[in-house]
Amino acid sequence: MSGQYIAFFILSLLTISGAIFMISFNRVIHMVVALAFTFLSIAGLFILLEAEFVGLTQIMVYSGGVSVLMLFGIMLTQHSKVERSEQKPALRIFTFAGILAFFVAVFYGIQKTPWSQEAVDYSTQNNVKEIGVQLYNNYVIPFELVSVLLLVALIGGIIMAKKEADDE
């Protein structure tokens, strides 16, 4: 039981510190690498919550896919080494104050709400099998719609990134 606490502490520390590093680094490549660490630690949090399939999907899609895609995006566009990476200070302070107010409000809400104390024990059942049964019994239409969405995103991405090259 205490091992769970230690794992949660380390994973949440890695998650939050990766996000903070992402905000505070100056070079864009370093930001993406810090965020890749955050994505991996979030996958660890999912596995700690007994959602193994979601955790592995997180590793595949975010750490493997989105991070590399963003690195490609940085390499294909301009990336000057030293640059002013943030907006004007007045806007930053205003945004920070607004987000702080939001944080305090939601934190108060989380602390005051009586969450249910018992947790479901998923460790006895096969997570992947259970997700497959649910997906093909109750969520067939959203599943198919998501496949259509991925196809549309694929074609749209190709057309938008390719169109101007033909005109030149």
């Binding site: 979601v54 999907t57 997180q58 899609v61 975010y62 896919g65 989105v66 895609l69 963003m70 490609f72 995006g73 998501v146 969405l149 991925l150 549309v152 995103a153 694929l154 749209g156 991405g157 190709i158 938008m160 990134a161």
Partner: peptide, 14 residues
């Protein structure tokens, strides 16, 4: 997660 991946791809294309 799927929708977020599609959004990242289209955003990068834009």
């Amino acid at each position: 997660i799927t929708v977020a991946a599609a959004e990242a791809a289209v955003g990068l294309a834009i």
